[in-house]
Design a protein around this nucleic acid. Structure first.
Lengths: 200, 200
DNA sequence: ATATACATACCAACCGGTCGGTATGCAATA
DNA sequence: TATTGCATACCGACCGGTTGGTATGTATAT
C-alpha cells in the first residue's frame, strides 16, 4: 500500500490549482492555504516545490499562461496564408476552446496583468514578454499578408496588431462584465468589420 | 482650540482614500487598516461611517466611479452634434483629464469590474449599471448622428456602442500593460479609423 | 545510506469586525 | 443666558481567524 510520490505530478497539481485560483480570484486573493486544500498537500510539501508565493505566481505565468496563448494564436495564424482569415478564425475559436470560462472569468493573461502590473515590476516584465510575443505574432502575420497581396501595403502592421489585440481583450472584458457570450459575438463582428478594412 | 469635527468631510476623506487604494491595489487587497493610516482615523471612526468593507466598496462605486464616467463621456458627447467627432474628442481628452494615472493604473471602473464581477453579484450589478448607462449614452449619440445624417443608417447603434467601449477599454488595458501612453495613441488612431467607417 | 518528498507544528503580522468608552456639538429647558 | 440631556463623531483595545513563511521531523525512493 505504498503511497504514490511523484514530484513532477505534484508540482503540476500545485500549478493547476494555483492557475484556477488566480484565474477566478486573482493572485493576491489566492491563498496558499486554499491551494493546499485543493491539492491535498501541506505547507511542507508546497514549499518544497516553490520557495515563495511569488515564485509560484511567476511559474504560473511561464509554464501555464504562455502555453495557452501559443496554442490559440500561434498555431491558428500559421495555418492561414491570409492573416485576416486567420484572425477571424481565432475569434470564432474562442468560445469553442475556452468555452464558458471566457464569459465568466475573462482572459487569464489580461486579468493577471491588470492586477499585478502596477504593483510588481517582476510580474509586469514577465507578463509583458508574453504580450510582446503576441503582438509580434499578429504583426508578422499581417506582414506576410502584405507580401502575398491580401493586406493593404499602407497600414502599419505593428499598430494594427496592437489594436487588434486591444479590441480583442476589450471585447472579452465587456463580455465578462455582462456575463453573457452574446457581447463577444457583437464585438467579434465589429472587429471583422475593421479587419475587412485592412484588405486590398 | 477645539478639534474640527466634520462628518461629511470625514466620510469624503474615507471615500477618497478607499478609491485611491482600490484603484491601485484592487478592492480585496485594500485593507481597512491602510485606509485608516492615510486618513488618520481609527477603527471606531471608520465603522461609524460605513457598516462594513463591502458597504464602503459599494459607496465608492455609487459616489465616485459613476461620477467620473459621467464627467468624461456624457458631458463631452452632448456638446457635439456629430457623435463621431464627439467620440474622437473623448479619446483626445483622456490623457489630458486623467493624465498619467490612466497609463499606470488603467480605467478604475473596468479594473474593479474585472476583479469583482465573477465573485460578488452585488458588486457586479452596481458596476454593470454604470456600463449600461455608458453604452446607452454612446448608442443614443450614434442615433442622433443617424438622424442628422452624419452616421450610416445601416449600422446598429447598440452594437457599435458596445464595440467602441470595448475597444476603448482594451486600449487602456494594453497601455497599462506596457506602461507607456504611446500605446493609447496608436489604438486611438485605429479606433478613429473604425469610426470613420461609420460615416456616410 | 543518502537525497528526495512530503507532514507537522508553529510563528509574527495582518485581516475584517466588535466593543466600551470619550469628546464634542446642539437643542430643549429652566 | 446658563444648564442639562442626548445624539453624533471618534478613539483604541481587543477578538477569532487567516496570511505567508519557517524549522524540524519522517517516510519513501534510489
Amino acid at each position: 500500500m505504498a503511497i504514490k510520490r511523484n514530484s513532477d505530478a505534484t508540482r503540476r497539481r500545485i500549478l493547476d490549482a494555483a492557475f484556477a485560483g488566480i484565474y477566478k480570484h486573482g493572485y493576491q486573493a489566492t491563498s496558499i492555504d486554499a491551494i493546499l486544500k485543493t491539492t491535498g498537500l501541506t505547507k511542507g510539501g508546497f514549499y518544497h516545490h516553490f520557495k515563495s508565493k511569488k515564485a509560484l505566481g511567476q511559474a504560473v505565468i511561464d509554464e501555464v499562461l504562455s502555453g495557452t496563448f501559443e496554442l490559440l494564436w500561434v498555431r491558428t495564424l500559421e495555418q492561414y496564408p491570409d492573416p485576416i482569415e486567420g484572425i477571424k478564425a481565432v475569434l470564432r475559436l474562442v468560445p469553442a476552446t475556452i468555452g464558458q470560462n471566457f464569459a465568466e472569468l475573462g482572459c487569464p493573461l489580461n486579468n493577471l496583468s491588470q492586477e499585478m502590473s502596477p504593483i510588481d515590476e517582476d510580474f509586469r516584465t514577465r507578463l509583458n514578454a508574453i504580450f510582446h510575443k503576441w503582438i509580434d505574432t499578429v504583426a508578422d502575420a499581417l506582414k506576410r499578408g502584405q507580401q502575398n497581396g491580401c493586406v493593404l501595403p499602407g497600414i502599419d502592421p505593428q499598430g494594427a496588431a496592437i489594436f487588434i489585440i486591444a479590441a480583442y481583450e476589450g471585447a472579452i472584458s465587456m463580455t465578462k462584465n455582462e456575463q453573457t457570450p452574446e457581447i463577444m459575438n457583437i464585438c467579434a463582428s465589429q472587429i471583422e468589420l475593421y479587419l475587412e478594412g485592412l484588405r486590398v
